[in-house]
Design a protein around this nucleic acid. Structure first.
Lengths: 199, 199
DNA sequence: GCATAATTGTGCAGAACTGCATAAAGTGCA
DNA sequence: TGCACTTTATGCAGTTCTGCACAATTATGC
């Protein structure tokens, strides 16, 4: 019997995890600036070069962030609920894409602890939101029939969804994942309300 | 007769300019990755350490960006026009704050050329928008009487203004300065229109 | 299975940046 | 002017990160 993922893929995930675990534990223990990449890679059992093959920065390794991606499932789920509520759909798509950047099996409580303590780590998270925004824009642009009749509609909607995510993340750091729909719904509602009176 | 700025201040501006000039010219000539900081500082006549005292990254030096600030004049101007249109006021404030990050006397045409050609440089510009956003938020939070009646109104409004700026900048790179009010007005209008139908 | 192709891991050289200690230059005041 | 005080410039050591070349590992077709 063959497992659904290849040996390569499993090893890859393992490497992601072991680097991330080593990084997060060391940083929680001794502080972000008191831990070097050399120490992390020694504990994780890989070379420094490999470290940077997996994570572009030390901060990404600590938070456990990799490049987000837009899977076919996410696209399909986005399309199926598009009729209901455009903004909510866009926000949920974006949150889901961001979710793909979190390395599987990490501890959300620890991630929250880390991001609350270190502004640098929050910054990295914000950058991943920008990456995800680019991906979401592509998806949204492919659905012109569902959008308001403006050539810029997709970009405005995406920008707005990203603003909602950033806003929500700042209120509740660590809360932006697709699993946390209630918090997102709350953020959307607050946004909508203020928008109505400010427009 | 004493000039209004101190000798120190003048020298500081000169150093900013000479580093930025050297960086921009070399990069236009040979490309971003083919120019080293060492080459820039040699042309500018300062040490490498001084380079990083003035600009946090090579990219910032090339674009000519320093830390934005919120001056008393900007604050006053923002307050005086707040009654008219909340969103426009916020966008203009933000654009003005971003304007303070541009080093004085640089060439906007060249800046546009550079940011169009190099995504890295656009990214740096975007980061400065985030910095400016933080400053603008402070200013907006100080005017609770002008805002919709919600504790989150200031943050939503700021996030929205930043979204408009990012949107406009992506449409017209290099166009986001306080002097370019027409482009900003256009961006706000587009945003507003889409928002109305998406809410 | 085995040869071959595609990925992934590693070492190394070099560029980007930071903290810290010290020298140089500008400022204010007796 | 001369002298303390503050700000700015520099050197240096050390960390982060990248491109490139090559070795090791995994996948693929026969």
């Amino acid at each position: 019997m063959q497992t659904s993922v290849s040996l390569r893929e499993r090893k890859r995930i393992d490497t992601y995890r072991s680097i991330h675990e080593a990084a997060a534990e060391l940083v929680l223990d001794r502080g972000l600036t008191n831990v070097t990449v050399d120490e992390i890679v020694e504990r994780a059992g890989v070379s420094a070069r490999t470290f940077f093959n997996y994570f572009p920065t030390k901060e990404d390794a600590v938070v456990g962030l990799r490049t987000p991606e837009l899977t076919d499932e996410l696209l399909a789920s986005f399309r199926s609920q598009l009729g209901d509520d455009l903004l909510s759909g866009a926000v949920e798509l974006l949150a889901a894409v961001i979710g793909t950047a979190l390395i599987p099996g990490d501890d959300p409580v620890r991630r929250k602890e880390l991001t609350v303590e270190y502004p640098e780590l929050r910054k990295r998270f914000m950058m991943r939101i920008s990456d995800a925004e680019r991906l979401a824009l592509q998806a949204i642009e492919e659905q012109p029939e569902s959008l308001p009749n403006s050539p810029e509609a997709a970009r405005v909607l995406t920008a707005l969804a990203a603003a909602v995510i950033r806003f929500t993340y700042q209120s509740q750091p660590g809360s932006v994942t697709s699993s946390n729909k209630e918090t997102l719904r709350q953020g959307i509602a607050t946004f909508r309300e203020v928008l109505r009176s400010a427009l």
